[in-house]
């Protein structure tokens, strides 16, 4: 029999009867575990419980109130975030597709350099930039008027749901495009060339060959974007805080104006549920792909 390497024997094998050794593993994990429990799980649990607390007793009062006051905003939020995610996905595919299939090296290089910038700009700044850009007399309308595309008299402000969607898409597209372009770049080029060899146009290659192979990455990016957008307060506040607005603005309003933690918690749980639907959708698609 060969000599056993002494250093490589595990702690529990070396001291099979020492209870210390058995405790060592959990002990090493405990700091991280305690931080997660104290700073994350506990407040989350408190909020969830708080959502069902009405004047000392438990009930669905907060939810009925949230439903009465904010149904429109809840639908508005789901639609805005869903639409933004959809547009983000389409733009990300377009950008990734051009980076993968573009035949003009200069244009590809410029796009590659340009598209990431919004990622480094905070949401609040995005809101601020778009507020001046999309206002009735903002740069967007002035440009359209200068180009003769609209009449000065018919110019309207875009600072409503459209403004929020534009802000979200503008901010989130680079992130999703980055993920999608990376996945596209790592595809077997042969699969693209094989399609080109048989006569597929670039659009068909993108839609029928490339996108189906990067669906998982695209969905991960979109679910992450969806959840991020669900939690953004600055953009609705900057662009459109009047009704209908997003749930985040309502939560802030309930807390700051009424100190109404119950309804705020209930609204929080509702937005968590909407995010949960997105996550469930993602998991389902993922499982089907795995099979």
């Amino acid at each position: 029999m060969r000599d056993r390497p002494t250093g490589a024997v595990s702690f529990t094998k070396r001291f099979p009867d020492k209870p210390m050794a058995r405790l060592l593993g959990p002990l090493l994990v405990s700091p991280a575990l305690i931080i997660i429990l104290l700073l994350f799980m506990l407040p989350l649990a408190a909020s969830v419980i708080g959502a069902f607390e009405v004047e000392g007793a438990y009930g669905l009062g907060n939810f009925t109130k949230a439903y009465e006051f904010y149904t429109q905003d809840i639908v508005f939020t789901a639609v805005i975030v869903g639409l933004s995610a959809l547009l983000t996905g389409l733009l990300a595919i377009a950008i990734g597709g051009y980076l993968t299939l573009g035949e003009n090296p200069t244009a590809v290089a410029i796009l590659r350099w340009l598209y990431r910038w919004p990622m480094f700009i905070p949401f609040i700044v995005v809101g601020q930039i778009l507020r001046t850009f999309l206002a009735k007399s903002g740069l967007f309308n002035s440009t359209l008027i200068a180009l003769g595309l609209i009449d000065p008299l018919t110019a309207t402000s875009y600072l409503d749901w459209r403004g929020i969607v534009i802000a979200f898409v503008w901010k989130q597209t680079p992130f999703v495009a980055l993920m999608v372009a990376g996945a596209m770049a790592s595809l077997d080029r042969g699969t693209i060339e094989a399609a080109r060899n048989l006569g597929a146009s670039r659009l068909r290659i993108l839609v029928e060959i490339i996108v189906p192979q990067v669906t998982t990455t695209l969905l991960v990016g979109l679910v992450l974007s969806f959840v991020t957008m669900m939690g953004v307060l600055s953009v609705p506040l900057m662009i459109n805080a009047q009704a209908p607005t997003m749930i985040t603005a309502d939560i802030a309003f309930r807390l700051n104006t009424y100190r109404d933690y119950g309804v705020a918690n209930a609204l929080g749980l509702i937005s968590l549920a909407i995010s949960g639907v997105a996550a469930w959708f993602y998991l389902r698609v993922n499982m089907r792909q795995g099979r």
Binding site: G190, E193, A194, A195, I209, Q213
Partner: peptide, 8 residues
Amino acid sequence: FQSYALWP
């Protein structure tokens, strides 16, 4: 193609 490049 060498890798066959079948569409997965």
